[in-house]
Design a protein around this nucleic acid. Structure first.
Lengths: 97, 97
DNA sequence: TTGTCAGGCAAGCGTCTGCTTGCCTAGGGT
DNA sequence: ACCCTAGGCAAGCAGACGCTTGCCTGACAA
């Protein structure tokens, strides 16, 4: 559970993918590949990115929806919210109603 | 920098060590070894724990002080505070004075 | 139908990593 | 002096991880 999330965050390429999905949601695999290559100078094969996305999806950090032959990816930051409170203590005034 | 922190958090044993140091600060290597063995049923060699502590210290999550032949370890949660805001956005009401 | 394009599956390979084992240094007590 | 204890250094090993390559499936268009 939390283990999957921390392990998913351990790789710099996966963190860059999260950055990219935060900046422009709903990208397909090919869009992510080209933007990682252009903006971040990461020359990786399509399968490498696909495997990273699988790890992120298994951790619940990325959600996907299919439309025809396209698969769109979106960041889900919810699992990250209280991840480190285990050691920092709850943020005193967070979630004030 | 952030890479060291995420990589340090990726291992479940290291997260347990942080838990243990949060619960009772200032433990020595041997104290940590025995408590990991007793409370968490982790049978590891002393060197394994020592190497984990080195990783945590390199990431800035654990600080140490020597006294004679003892070396005491303390949790430093500061690097964890804003670690995930990169994707969650800043906590709206955090750090209110 | 045939061709093309987005994506998935699986095996293989090199590297990193967590852990062990063995030996070594330094501080403190008798 | 001697011994014991807390900790460090370094080599070695098995498994995990990141990435590639090659082939396959399914959706659309000509």
């Amino acid at each position: 559970m939390a283990d999957d999330i921390f392990k998913a965050l351990a790789d710099p390429t996966r963190r860059t993918i999260l950055d990219e999905l935060a900046e422009s949601p709903g990208q397909t695999l090919f869009e992510l590949c080209s933007r990682l290559a252009m903006k971040h100078r990461l020359g990786m094969s399509r399968q490498a990115v696909s495997q990273h996305l699988a790890v992120l999806e298994a951790a619940g950090l990325v959600e996907t929806r299919r439309e025809g032959r396209y698969k769109f990816h979106d960041l889900n930051p919810a699992p990250l919210r209280h991840l480190t409170e285990r050691w920092t203590g709850p943020n005193p005034t967070e979630d004030t109603p």
